[in-house]
Design a protein around this nucleic acid. Structure first.
Length: 556
RNA sequence: GGGCGCGUAGCUCAACUGGCAGAGCAAUGGACUCUUAAUCCAUAGGUUGAAGGUUCGAUUCCUUCCGCGCUCACCA
């Protein structure tokens, strides 16, 4: 059994490791000679301005003063017995007299977020992983020695306090310290307490400061964790097996999506490798192998631009279900989104950037074929057959006000009917999707989907859907192509496209075709962007707000 | 990569048309045993992102560079 680490898991009052005495949170001041003063590890401090250098110097001096008092400014081995939230849960709205009848002996530790001092008494706002609690320290209650230690405390330090609960005159639940010590001395100051960190760049580069100083940031990442664990439970409950496949792909394996990969290299094998752009081809190999329901939650890398909706590395879940079709996955997706919204936000209606979005099923279906053709003034049949398509695109481009849209249409005019329809839908159809609920886009042309099974009723289309929420593509799913001959032909078309300059065309993965030749059961698969789903469920405007350490340019 | 915007004390922001770089918080010293952005007195803190140019004089105007944000393209 793994040894629990302090500060992790459910630390209950009285929890101990077997056979070990409980570490005392607050040791009596030591009478041993103070440990030697540590020199400043970065004496030049070139990254600091003069004012901050002065602050650091003063705090280092306080660390030394703590040593002189027998307190190790970076001590360890002490664990608090309680959490701030446990006091709150115990007393709730109890009046002073009720608390006084059973004040308890509480033991908490955490970071000092605010300090209001009165000379011989003070209030500290302490934050631990459960929340915040006020600690009241009074010289005549805590004692002279502990009060001397307190005098060396700065905002930002990690401290420990023990004592009874009470309620102040202002009505705030408070721990009145009978014992007090410093556990960790912070030598750098925190951001300004009222405005916090407004510099977005610094928030991303120094996420630890952001987590301390910006309200709501911790909650975003708690919600993200809850989303992932709920997703995992949802799939586990339906018989899916969680697997892990390689992130390092040989050049011929790096397919499964239209994207450019990152290049890397293995030295010992002298082998050029690429970071995966999708998990699709390996997961389908596993379906061939008899793992009929598999999923992988993992990092995907795409060598593309960065904006509000894109980070070069992001987290996807892909899952594959044998003996299912895209219709089955639509139903599953609707149920999944409703479940995630309820578990993460408390209800099926979420608000994203001021827009209420109801995730209650069912979601409307919007036909890429019908809407794309309609935008071009053609019947779906004429559009698919390419009849009058070139003229229609030229007309649409001419009346398109947006120069970029017109340019895209003109570029698309040289491509296949299916690709033209997809572009027409992107320009004219996507902006018209409903805003107050998700929508499935269906009826994709086969040319846009090199891994999808052709529709039996019309092989120019595939049984595929994309789920759009709040203008973002959140999911992409289809009935999988399991005809090896067809897959071989699709790969060959991709190779031709690449030769013609399409850098995002997939390589020919011969082993994947070989796997299909062993027979893959009829299967449907889906990929969902975890980051975008998290944006939606945390009302975050940028993908960088839901990735702890988003990629930024190196500081000059 | 293109367009727009931003960069001033540790943090949040001022500084009119080019004319002595300021405030609050944080910090340091002092007063204060019920505070909630505590309060009061005092002190200290600056290569105005970098380099160059125009000017008697540049935080301010110009050029280039660096970084970030928004946006467009690429993309999920």
């Amino acid at each position: 059994m793994a040894r629990p680490r302090r500060g992790e898991g459910q630390h209950l009052p009285g929890d101990r490791l077997p056979g070990l005495p409980a570490a005392r949170l607050i040791a009596a001041p030591s009478h041993r000679p103070p440990p030697p003063h540590m020199s400043d590890p970065t004496p030049d401090r070139a990254d600091l301005g003069a004012a901050e250098r002065e602050i650091v110097r003063a705090r280092l001096a306080k660390a030394d003063a703590l040593r002189a008092l027998g307190v190790h400014p970076y001590g360890n081995g002490a664990a608090p017995r309680h959490l701030a939230a446990e006091l709150v849960a115990r007393y709730r709205d109890a009046p002073v007299e009720a608390i006084a009848a059973d004040p308890g002996d509480w033991s908490i530790a955490g970071r000092v977020l605010a300090l209001r001092s009165f000379g011989k008494a003070a209030f500290l706002q302490l934050e631990d992983r459960s929340g915040t609690l006020q600690v009241w320290i009074r010289r005549d209650r805590v004692g002279e020695a502990a009060f001397e230690i307190f005098r060396l405390v700065d905002v930002g330090d990690i401290v420990a306090a023990e004592g009874p609960a009470t309620r102040t005159r202002a009505g705030e639940l408070t721990l009145e310290a009978l014992r007090f010590t410093v556990l960790t001395k912070a030598v750098r100051p925190l951001p300004e307490k009222w405005h916090g960190l407004a510099d977005v760049e610094q928030r991303y580069r120094q996420r630890y400061l952001d987590l301390i100083a910006t309200p709501g940031v911790k909650e975003v990442f708690r919600r993200r964790a809850r989303l992932v664990s709920t997703l995992r439970r949802f799939l586990d409950d339906r018989g899916f097996l969680e697997v892990e496949t390689p992130t390092l792909h040989k050049p011929e394996e790096a397919g499964g999506a239209a994207a450019r990969p990152f290049q890397t290299h293995h030295n010992a094998l002298d082998l050029d490798l690429k970071l995966r752009i999708a998990t699709e081809l390996h997961l389908k190999r596993l379906v061939v192998g008899g793992l009929d329901r598999v999923y992988e939650i993992g990092r995907i890398f795409r060598n593309e631009g960065i904006d509000r909706r894109h980070n070069p590395e992001f987290t996807s879940v892909e899952f594959y279900q044998a003996y299912a079709t895209d219709r089955d996955l639509m139903a599953l997706t609707e149920e999944l989104l409703r479940t995630l919204a309820v578990e993460v936000t408390g209800g099926p209606v979420v608000t994203y950037q001021g827009q209420a979005i109801d995730l209650t099923p069912p979601y409307p279906r919007v036909s890429m074929l019908a809407e794309g053709a309609r935008a071009l003034g053609l019947s779906p049949e004429d559009a698919l057959a390419g009849r009058g398509l070139a003229e229609a695109v030229a007309r649409a481009a001419a009346r398109e006000n947006d120069a970029e849209g017109a340019w895209k249409l003109e570029q698309a005019a040289r491509r296949s009917p299916g690709e033209i329809l997809a572009v027409a839908f992107e320009i004219f159809g996507e902006p018209a999707l409903p805003r107050d609920r998700p929508a499935f886009v269906v009826d994709f042309p086969v040319e846009t989907s090199p891994l999808s099974r052709p529709r039996d009723a019309d092989p120019r289309l595939v049984d595929r859907f994309e789920l759009f929420v709040a203008g973002m593509e959140v999911a992409n799913a289809f009935s999988e192509l399991n005809d090896p001959a067809d897959q071989r032909a699709r790969f060959e078309a991709q190779v031709r496209a690449r030769a013609a300059g399409d850098e995002e065309a997939m390589p020919y993965d011969e082993d994947f075709v070989r796997a299909l030749e062993q027979g893959m059961p009829p299967t449907a698969g889906e990929g969902i962007g975890i980051d975008r789903l998290t944006m939606l469920l945390t009302d975050s405007p940028s993908i960088r707000d839901v990735i702890l350490f988003p990629l930024l340019r190196t500081r000059a």
